[in-house]
């Protein structure tokens, strides 16, 4: 008979103590912002990003016994998040982008006050929106590697681990992403 916790969940023996049931809440607190940031930048909708982030931790909790420590916990969580974002985009391809376009301006309104004049703030918002819009036109892989590199500061090696690509492939996608965004920014001027 398998050992269970008081709440009825199966107690699994972990190699990494951070993944034990007792420590999982701390792990969620530690990584929630980083996962949410990546998901939000990918899906451009805070409510959806929250849902996918919760799904990410739930999936991580359920599959924690399979985590062998070959990569860091952060990389492992990001890998789960990448799959969730991809699955979501594929399952709701049309509604997804329509909905993202709709909430975009609402999200922009919530940017923190940067203590600038209204004109400057409008110009900054325009620039932010242009970059965000440009990431939307990239392929899924290009967008993912771009966000992981320049939003999450992951190294090429960590991005390769999270995406399952080779380092040279990550580099190629990153160069193409930068070229694509620059082209798009040039067109939007």
């Amino acid at each position: 008979m398998k050992p269970t916790t008081t709440s009825g969940f199966i107690a699994v023996s972990m190699e990494n103590p951070a993944l034990e049931t007792e420590n999982f809440e701390r792990l969620v607190e530690q990584y929630r912002t980083r996962v949410l940031r990546f998901v939000f930048a990918s899906v451009r909708d805070m409510d959806l990003a929250e849902t996918l982030t919760q799904d990410c931790f739930l999936k991580a909790y359920r599959s924690r016994a399979a985590f062998r420590g070959a990569c860091s916990i952060h990389t492992w969580l990001i890998r789960i998040a990448i799959n969730l974002v991809r699955d979501h985009a594929r399952s709701r391809r049309f509604q997804f982008w329509r909905s993202a376009a709709r909430v975009h301006s609402e999200e922009i309104r919530d940017w923190p006050d940067r203590k600038t004049s209204p004109e400057d703030e409008a110009a900054l918002n325009e620039q932010i929106q242009a970059v965000w819009e440009a990431t939307r036109t990239l392929s899924e892989r290009q967008r993912t590697v771009f966000l992981l590199r320049y939003m999450e500061d992951l190294s090429i090696c960590e991005i390769a681990e999270a995406t399952g690509l080779t380092e040279s492939t990550v580099n190629v996608h990153l160069v193409r992403a930068v070229r694509g965004i620059r082209k798009r920014l040039g067109e939007s001027k």
């Binding site: 709440s7 931790f57 970059v131």
Partner: peptide, 29 residues
């Protein structure tokens, strides 16, 4: 700038709510 804006937006969001971890089991005493 884009990076700062996204980070700021998420920080404000995270700071304004309580993490929802209700789907995880309660800890044994």
């Amino acid at each position: 700038l884009f990076r700062r804006a996204i980070r700021g937006r998420v920080d404000v969001h995270v700071g304004s709510d309580v993490p929802e971890v209700s789907s995880f089991p309660e800890y044994a005493p």
